[in-house]
Amino acid sequence: MLLNKLKVFKSHGSQYIPDLDAVQLPEIFRGRPELSECDEETARELEKMCPTKAIAASPFSLDMGRCLFCGECARRAPQAIRFTNDYRIGASRREDLIVTPATRSIPFAHDAVRKEIPAMFAHALKLRQVSAGGDASVEMELNATGNVNFDFGRYGVEFVASPRHADGVVITGPVSRNMAEALQVCYDAVPDPKVVIVAGSEAVSGSLYAESTEVDRSFFERHQPDLWLPGAPTHPMVFIEAVMNLIGRRRRGEQTKK
C-alpha cells in the first residue's frame, strides 16, 4: 500500500513554479495583441468580422475587454494584428485594455488603485468568487491559481467559501439576469473595504452576450471594478500578475524586488 504512494510521490516530484515572475507562456499563447497601422479598407473589414465588436476601424484599435482571443483577425490580416504571448494584460482602469498601434505594453495605473487596497491587502487577500453566466473555463483557471503548480496562496491570496470571510469578490461571466440579485447580495455581505475584480472578457464587457436579454449588468452601474482581467478564459498568470500589482507587491515594468 505504502509502495503505491511512494511511486505516486516519486513520479509527481516537485511541480510548483519557484519564481512566478519568471514564467513565460509558449509563443503560441494568445495574449496582448499588437496592432500596426493599416489601410482603412482592411481596418473596416476587421471591424466587420469581429464577432464581439472588439475592433474599431477609426481610429484603429482593439478592446481586449471584449476580445475572446480567437485570433481570427490576425489570420485575416497578419500585417495589421498579431497576438503576442505577453500575459501582463490586467488593468486597474477599463480604458487601459484598449490597444492601439502605439501600444507596446499594457500599463498598470497604480495611482488609479484605491489607497486602502495595497495598505490593507498587500499580505493577505481573501476572495469570494461569483460565477454569473460564466462558461466554467474562467472558474477553472481561477481554481488553478491555487493549485500545486501556481500556488498563489504563497502570497496570501486565496479563495474562501463565505463572503463574510472575504475582502472582495471576483466576478466571472456576463452576469446573467438570474444571478444579478445573488451577485449583489454576495457583494453586500463582504465587509468594507472591499475589492471587485472582473475576470474574463465576458465579465469585463458581456462580450458575445453584451446584447442578450438574459443578461443584467446593472451591478456595474453601481460598483466600479478595481481590476479588469481580459481573456477567454483568463490564464492563471494573467490573474496572478495583475493581482500582485493591485495589492502593490509588484510594479509592472520594473525590476522586481527579490
Binding site: P51, S131, N178, M179, L208, S212, E214, V215
Partner: peptide
C-alpha cells in the same frame, strides 16, 4: 437556470 444567458438565441440570431 441561474446561468441562463441565451446561448441558443444568440447562435440562431448570429449572421456570422
Amino acid at each position: 437556470g441561474y446561468q441562463h444567458r441565451g446561448a441558443e438565441r444568440q447562435i440562431e440570431t448570429s449572421e456570422s
